[in-house]
């Protein structure tokens, strides 16, 4: 199990729309935002590829996301 804190950077005005999409993603918990274009989220998944899945698939697949920046990653030996 891996748990990551990330900041999702969006284009201006898109934070709410991106947040709405992210809450549909299993293992993603939106923690808040700056009200403009950044979201704080926690990702937890049995398979640590979830972090990469956000970083890569969302950036490549969502034109409104400019980047996903981890601020913390911790691991739990329990699955």
């Amino acid at each position: 199990m891996i748990v990551a804190g990330v900041v999702v950077e969006t284009v201006e005005g898109a934070a709410a729309r991106v947040a709405a999409r992210l809450v549909e993603v299993p293992g993603v918990e939106i923690q808040g935002g700056d009200g403009l274009r950044r979201l704080a989220a926690v990702i937890s998944a049995e398979d640590a590829a979830a972090l990469d899945a956000l970083g890569r698939k969302l950036v490549e697949g969502d034109e409104e996301i400019l980047g996903v920046f981890p601020t913390y990653v911790g691991s739990d030996p329990e699955p």
Partner: peptide
Amino acid sequence: LKTTAAASALAALG
């Protein structure tokens, strides 16, 4: 871990 992760992300947002 979740609390720490959330704290770090929110701290980065000020």
